[in-house]
Design a protein around this nucleic acid. Structure first.
Lengths: 124, 124
DNA sequence: GATCCAAAGTTGCATATGCAACTTGCGTCT
DNA sequence: AGACGCAAGTTGCATATGCAACTTTGGATC
């Protein structure tokens, strides 16, 4: 479906930096919020805590995260470099996508995302 | 991210019929196009052939698909019933979602999807 | 008819994800 | 201090997915 196509595009772009899309998103957020806890992060990215836990372990294995994970997440130097690289790719990618698909379509997605998040906060 | 939320919603709805969102989509398509080949289906739903092959095996294990898969996919009676049930849920769900998120947002998604598909056809 | 090829399908290996059950650790309450 | 409990994290089990390598199969060629 749709998400498969989008994810495919993004993964392709980030492959250059040796990371997947999901990993890139995490790296950038940890970069922006050093010492963040898994619970908080999992809410931000809407990933189940167990899934996140595993993604984190993967980042660790790749040498991007400092070991003592349970007291907050912190990047290694290598991780920091990678995060910065990801951010550059990310900006470029967003730019390209707006160009290719049209700003209106992209904004539509953001709108949808907001409304969904609102729902989540009201309903459950 | 976004797709996680959406997928979550859809899975929740289809859980009632004992199927996941992905499985429901396949069942409905096979219902609409009996005897369809995996290659064709994989293009329609934009799933890699290997992933599809496994999804198909799963449908078989659940007793929804007839065994001789390599000569075209056909539902069993049970599968047909399930597919119909899925279709009902699907219609309901789309209706609800338009109501909750607004038709404009949903239409925006469709637009995006079209443009992406166009891209796929031009580029590669 | 035997051979060989390209397309279809499957399998090995890896990531990403969710739910439910379990573990751990820290703080509270008595 | 000691027992208890909740919140954070982890682990078991399952689906969903992609890429690359392999197998199978139905035809086309000769």
């Amino acid at each position: 479906m749709l998400s498969r196509m989008v994810t495919g595009l993004y993964n392709e772009a980030f492959a250059e930096a040796g990371v997947t899309f999901a990993q890139a998103a995490l790296l950038m957020r940890i970069f922006a919020q050093p010492g963040i806890r898994q619970v908080v992060l999992s809410k931000q990215v809407q990933i189940e805590k167990s899934a996140l836990s595993r993604d984190i372990q993967l980042l660790q294995r790749n040498g991007w995260l400092q070991p003592n994970v349970r007291d907050g997440l912190n990047l290694t130097e290598l991780g920091t470099i990678t995060a910065k690289r990801c951010h550059k790719i990310w900006k470029q990618l967003n730019h390209d996508i707006r160009a290719e698909l049209g700003s209106d379509a992209v904004d539509g997605l953001s709108l949808l995302s907001e409304r969904l998040t609102d729902l989540k906060h009201k309903k459950p």
